[in-house]
Write a protein that binds this DNA or RNA. Structure first.
Lengths: 339, 339
DNA sequence: CTGTTAGCGCCTTCAG
DNA sequence: CTGAAGGCGCTAACAG
């Protein structure tokens, strides 16, 4: 089955020039005489020649692809970001290599960086240990998430500000008993959003009661679990700010399945503005992250770093935005104050 | 910045053996004497040597990666399949290269196949023209979707059977007025599911009225649009089988936002069983596709083909399953018969 | 068991 | 403007 593939030599022979000329005719068309180029191109067409990327890259000392490190590929949150990333990488001549940092053994990460498999790396996993990037030699890396250390260039979203906006909105709608459904402990996003919420509540003179903080992991199931906890509470918050839309969706769903009405009995605010948010019942009020743009900017900044052969570069902070829909209403009568 | 990277020569020099031995010590440890190997490994550690994949692959005449052609990366439907795919590819020593067939220019596809960029290809896009694969030379390809021609090995799901099951379930719940929210015209999945639905309805002696077929594209918005159409109908179906869960979600959402109750006024069945389905209000009854397994099996069959250096191979049909939740109920009183 | 030798296919000085 | 030659870094015969 291994049919013979045309090489640059075949083309050279057929068009009666040297391989060097073929190479030039394809890479720098302007540096070759018109008729010669024509002849070469004809031979290319005839042989069906396509340059072997392996050989070319070996020679050029590059790989032509960039690597995305995603914590969990199955999480739809990343698909749109990756889409944005791919849309700028492809025109720039890079392929997109994707690795799941949860599936892959840890050692593999260092390997990825040191192996020269990629010309650049986009890190989406905020929980990767910083040491992981401290390898002898590595390509440019850009973070597309918050990160413990602030040393590397990144494209981030203002998570704390988003949390503050969410809390303020609930406050302005009359809520005083406000809870929070957290992401996974130790995650930077979790911490930023929690910190933002805490700060804003404090500024408003409201408590964040320990029993109104529900631990979770950003997932649907963790939202449902939070709802169960909420149901078991003697004194319940009248509004819950969820650290992700998925959690919010699980939370609202479970509550309504239990006969609790949203938003008349509880108000809910999410985070992310995933596509389904607008189609839920009730439509979810949430903090929008410009996901596609995160991917795009990450790709652009990374290409620039590669071009400049620099390990460092500028960072960028993208704004978030409150999207008001119908999952927030004033608190039920008699519950507008602290218990 | 371009620090010098250790090559196999550096290791050879440092450990006092030939490069061939270094290569063997790393690739075939058993073919090298114990002490020699130790020395080599020590030198490797000392120099931080990592084999250059480009050079290795050029020599081995392989690429070490497989390419996934996805119609739309932003569609979360694929993320779980890709996750399953990655989970078998990584241990097998392959990287996962992902290309968005809608973002990428069409010519690029042929390039992908001919360029020798990947050792194998997984096609998720059922709308790719069959000619696209008719290149001079291409690596093994496996289809992870239905396809017009049945010539290539594939991992598929029994879409028609799924549709039949959905329709039968609605029938058994008492429905006689049954509609269908379609996927995009021309898509194989669309056709199979429509055909399955049509066949089953016929078998049950029921009509599929033209005005009860809602065109769409599998997306949330198209589900909402179908709801609008439904609302405008004089004679409405009491149940709608949606070609995707996203469409079902959009459909139920829009209906409920308009004050129509699901399932008391309309019953809905979806297709896919995406994660959120169970958390919707009401929880969505749907046809489950084993997405992660689709990815896994595709990876396994493809590796086998590559191993065997064969362009052909076995296909596989994965079963679907009805998941009963709460979006289906008997029709409203007086609407249990055809109008 | 180890070293020598010969490329994998391409690009890029350096001459002509 | 074109050709000749060398080598990117590695592995797979083939000898020894």
């Amino acid at each position: 089955m291994r049919q013979k593939v045309a090489t640059i030599q075949d083309v050279a022979r057929l068009s009666g020039v040297s391989t060097a000329t073929v190479s030039r005719a394809l890479s720098h068309p302007d540096r070759v005489a018109e008729p010669t180029r024509e002849a070469v191109l004809r031979a290319v067409r005839e042989t069906g020649y396509v340059a072997n990327p392996m050989a070319r890259n070996l020679r050029r000392r590059r790989t032509g692809s960039i690597l995305a490190l995603v914590p969990n590929l199955a999480n739809p949150f990343f698909s749109e970001i990756l889409s944005g990333l791919a849309s700028v990488l492809t025109p720039a001549g890079y392929g997109l290599l994707i690795a799941d940092t949860h599936t892959d053994p840890a050692g593999r990460l260092t390997y990825y960086l040191e192996s020269g498999l990629a010309d650049g790396v986009v890190v989406f996993d905020g929980t990767l240990p910083e040491e992981a990037l401290a390898t002898r030699r590595r390509p440019p890396v850009i973070l597309a998430c918050e990160w413990m250390g602030e040393t590397l260039p990144s494209v981030r979203v203002d998570n704390a500000a988003g949390a503050e906006i969410a809390i303020r909105h609930l406050y302005e709608m009359g809520h005083r008993r406000i809870g929070h459904a957290m992401g996974p402990v130790g995650n930077v996003l979790t911490e930023s959003r929690l910190a933002g919420a805490r700060r804003e509540l404090e500024a408003l003179g409201l408590p964040l009661r320990e029993d109104w903080i529900f631990r979770g992991d950003f997932g649907l199931a963790s939202g449902s679990a939070a709802a169960m906890t909420w149901l078991g509470l003697k004194e319940r918050p009248t509004a819950v700010f969820c650290a992700s839309d998925e959690a919010a969706c699980g939370f609202m769903g479970a509550l309504q399945h239990a006969g609790i009405s949203v938003p008349s009995a509880v108000s809910v605010v999410g985070f992310d503005d995933i596509e389904v948010a607008a189609h839920l019942v009730p439509p979810l009020t949430t903090i929008r992250q410009p996901r596609r743009q995160i991917g795009r900017r990450a790709g652009e900044l990374l290409s620039a770093m590669i071009e400049a052969r620099a390990l460092g570069g500028p960072s960028e902070l993208l704004p978030v935005e409150l999207i008001r829909r119908q999952s927030v209403a004033p608190p039920p009568p008699g519950q507008g104050d602290l218990p």
